[in-house]
Design a binder for these strands. Structure first.
Length: 403
DNA sequence: TGTCCACAGGAAATACGGGGGT
DNA sequence: ACCCCCGTATTTCCTGTGGACA
């Protein structure tokens, strides 16, 4: 009845804390209840030729974040590996994780590192050199080589040469049978690649739909079984979380996060998880997102946000007015102020992140301006302002603009 | 219809900073 | 330690724009 009885094993609420083996255990349970079974069977038939000495073409997995692309394929590859071992088929797979955007050089370097072909370089070695080292490392190998490139569209700066290497150069210089699995959340990621490479790229596509409420319910139930005390959860909570999540994003990770947050709030309050708490958790997650984002943002962006937010009230502000405020903020914070041009870029960035909304309005004779409105609830914006002041080590700040 | 406001936003130039080579 | 190179951040310069106003 006392607090701390809700969460029994909190690491099962956060994948980061699970080691590989535990992750696979969870996955196995999930797949055992027929979640993603359609995709798994598509995968199976795609790789089936391997058992008849055939050569599957490359594969592209498409779907939004949190639809389980990575997880599913890792699970599948693991099974495949076991199956191959049983059938004496040589196979090796590598998971190249590009979830953090990186240039072609880094991507290749990462790949080389995964193969133990080189050490990690910042630069100072040519792309060509990297490629040859990778090739050399793979030359002795003759079986199937499955390269899982996660988030292919994150290769910035010259993605073509990266693909060219994988699709054209590598297969020609080694004897192994290469199967590349691409992952992307952009359905059209292939559209802007060099047509010459594209014509070489024969691929099969598998689409991952967002999870529906039923799937999410299954996934959540498994987590609950592992992590929480069921008795402390009000009836309908799982259904509610699943419904909200499937409606808004269909992202399993976020659904688990919502569950986790609800549990934490409940624990803090010493109550069970109720339906109301779920709403509360939802709100808090939203708020945390903004806070985390602004904390990790560069100082200039924080300053810009502060100056915009300091126009309390809902009336729109234009760029030059907020720029003035920004300048005085910088003066007090002893920071150098950016140009108006750069300031305007910051504003657009804040718009993209959703801190503010902007709209270009023409006032005819009186010029064109960008109207800025904040879309954040007051409490969030107050919280953000507080944090920014803290970051700048400014305790009190009188708002000179509000005279 | 033409003018002209007050800024938006593109392009090129320049400053900066960190890492590798020597 | 010193210099060079490269990627990124910021500045400088500039062209473009919708519509009220005359």
């Amino acid at each position: 009845m006392l607090q701390n009885t809700i969460v029994l094993n909190k690491k099962y609420l956060d994948d980061e804390q699970l080691d590989r083996k535990e992750q696979f255990e969870v996955l196995k349970e999930i797949f055992d209840v027929n979640v993603r079974s359609k995709e798994i069977s598509e995968l199976s038939s795609h790789f089936a030729p391997m058992f008849k000495d055939g050569h599957p073409v490359h594969l592209s997995l498409l779907g939004k974040t949190g639809t389980g692309k990575t997880v599913t394929i890792l699970y599948f590859l693991n099974m495949l590996k076991a199956l191959c071992a049983k059938n004496k088929i040589q196979v090796k797979y590598i998971h190249l994780d590009l979830s953090i955007p990186k240039p072609c050089f880094r991507a290749l370097n990462d790949l080389a590192c995964l193969l133990n072909a080189t050490k990690r370089y910042k630069r100072g070695i040519s792309l060509d050199e990297l490629m040859s080292r990778i090739e050399d490392k793979l030359k002795p190998f003759t079986g199937y080589f499955i390269l899982f490139v996660d988030e292919i569209d994150h290769v910035r700066r010259d993605p073509d040469s990266f693909l060219k290497f994988l699709i054209r150069r590598l297969p020609q210089s080694v004897r192994l049978k290469l199967v590349v699995i691409f992952t992307s959340n952009k359905l059209n990621w292939q559209e802007n690649i060099d047509p010459r490479i594209k014509s070489f790229l024969k691929l099969n596509e598998i689409l991952f739909d967002p999870y529906n409420a039923l799937d999410l319910e299954k996934i959540l139930s498994i987590r609950i079984g592992k992590a929480l005390d069921k008795k402390m959860i009000e009836r309908g909570v799982v259904k509610k979380i699943s419904a909200i999540s499937s409606r808004t994003h269909g992202d399993a990770r976020k659904a688990v996060e919502l569950l986790s947050k609800s549990a934490h709030i409940a624990e803090r309050r010493g109550t069970g998880i109720t339906l109301d708490l779920v709403d509360k958790a939802l709100q808090e997650i939203e708020q945390d997102k903004y806070v985390a984002m602004i904390k990790s943002a560069p100082g200039q962006l924080q300053a810009v946000l502060y100056s915009v937010l300091s126009f309390s009230g809902t009336k729109p502000v234009n760029t030059s007015d907020s720029y003035d405020v920004y300048c005085s903020f910088c003066a007090q914070a002893k920071t150098r102020a950016l140009t108006q041009r750069a300031f305007s870029d910051m504003i657009s960035e804040l718009d993209i992140y959703g801190f503010i909304k902007t709209r270009i309005v023409s006032q005819g004779r009186y010029g064109r301006k960008k109207e800025i409105t904040t879309s954040l609830p007051k409490e969030v914006s107050d919280r953000l302002k507080e944090i920014i002041l803290l970051e700048f080590d400014l305790e009190i700040l009188n708002n000179p603009e509000l005279k």
